[in-house]
């Protein structure tokens, strides 16, 4: 019984949040890794792309709510997703046309792209604050829980509750569907195969008649969709605040690098590694130890939550020291 209580406690505060956060990071890191694979630079504007897509979703959600449209127990934001994706696709393609394309024709070094992407980050950031403002926005509706802590306690007779929020369930389902679709696209369709070829060896791909502009365009479209969905899921789960999307950039980069930049499988693995380490290191284990029969004083917490992004940084440093190419190196796409 005590062991089950400890497990429920871990499940509630460690495993469920870890999985949810891992999904969100994985989707974000996939966007980073796709752009890295095709355009070969780390896109610093990715966090803001997520925020932009989410902002459009929020605005459309408010419109739908105003018209009385709803999805019942599911959040209305899911209906608004296509609009958000369309808007961020348009934004990214415009950005590519007027910013990155020039450097592509110049064959600039990745550092120049990187600086340009930071300039873009500021443009987006200003745009978002200009439209929706810097404050917290709530846009989640529908039912809040799949399993409530109290119901779980009654069901199992345990002292510890296990709650699963609707947004957590949605995050997992959407991520699984999206990842399957993405891998199907990359490995089965002609466009996906040409992307993999382009990422593996640009010159060889060009020789065999692959249109680089098309590949780049598809990469931006995929990135826009992934970023918008990741951003919306994150916003539904926590809340939407433009500033947090700037902060999430570091764990996303860490996830992409831990998995190996340019490797989609790596991005997903990296997302979960980062998410679980972050949650596990900042979790206070005192009660768990209590259920296991050891009474301890102190929180038994390795690191206070103020430093949670230090965890992703520490993992990043370890990977850079031990295996700079990441866990899934060599497998680009």
């Amino acid at each position: 019984m005590e062991t089950l209580n400890a497990l429920a406690l871990l499940g509630n505060f460690l495993i469920v949040p870890g999985i949810t956060y891992g999904c969100q990071l994985a989707l974000g890191a996939l966007g980073i890794t796709l752009i890295y694979g095709i355009l070969r630079f780390s896109n610093f504007a990715h966090g803001e792309t997520m925020a932009f897509g989410t902002m459009v979703v929020i605005l459309v959600t408010w419109g739908l709510q105003g018209m009385g449209v709803s999805l019942g127990p599911l959040p209305t934001a899911l209906l608004a997703l296509p609009f958000g994706i369309a808007a961020s696709v348009a934004l990214l393609l415009l950005t590519d046309r007027y910013v990155y394309k020039f450097y592509r024709t110049q064959r600039s070094t990745p550092v120049i792209y990187l600086i340009a992407s930071i300039g873009v980050m500021f443009l987006y950031n200003g745009l978002i604050r200009f439209i929706i403002g810097p404050n917290d926005q709530q846009f989640s509706d529908g039912s809040r829980f799949i399993i409530k802590a109290r119901e779980f306690k009654q069901m199992t007779g345990l002292d510890e509750g296990l709650a699963i929020k609707t947004t957590q369930g949605i995050t997992l389902v959407v991520t699984v569907v999206l990842v399957i679709a993405l891998f199907w696209f990359l490995s089965r369709t002609r466009a996906g195969k040409s992307m993999r070829a382009y990422s593996d060896n640009e010159d060889l791909a060009l020789l065999s008649g692959i249109d680089p502009d098309r590949v780049v365009m598809i990469a931006w479209c995929l990135t826009a969709a992934l970023a918008t969905i990741a951003g919306t899921l994150y916003g539904l789960d926590k809340s939407f605040k433009p500033f947090t999307y700037l902060q999430i950039l570091l764990p996303i980069f860490a996830a992409a690098i831990v998995g190996g930049l340019g490797s989609p499988v790596g991005a997903i693995a990296g997302g979960f590694v980062i998410a679980f380490s972050e949650v596990a290191v900042t979790f206070a284990y005192r009660k768990v130890f209590g259920y296991m029969g050891y009474e301890v004083d102190g929180l038994m917490q390795l690191l206070s939550t103020d430093y949670k992004f230090a965890v992703s940084f520490a993992i990043l440093v370890i990977v850079l020291l031990v295996k700079p190419t990441g866990l899934f190196a060599g497998k680009s796409f």
Binding site: P110, L250, F253, A254, I257, L261, Y307, F313, V317, L320
Partner: peptide, 26 residues
């Protein structure tokens, strides 16, 4: 840690360390 690798890594590592320094000071 980060020099001698791809140029992106220095950028990301410096981004990380600056946020950690500020968190410590705060």
């Amino acid at each position: 840690v980060s020099l001698g690798l791809r140029s992106d890594y220095l950028a990301i590592a410096t981004l990380g360390i600056s946020e950690i320094i500020i968190a410590i000071l705060k």
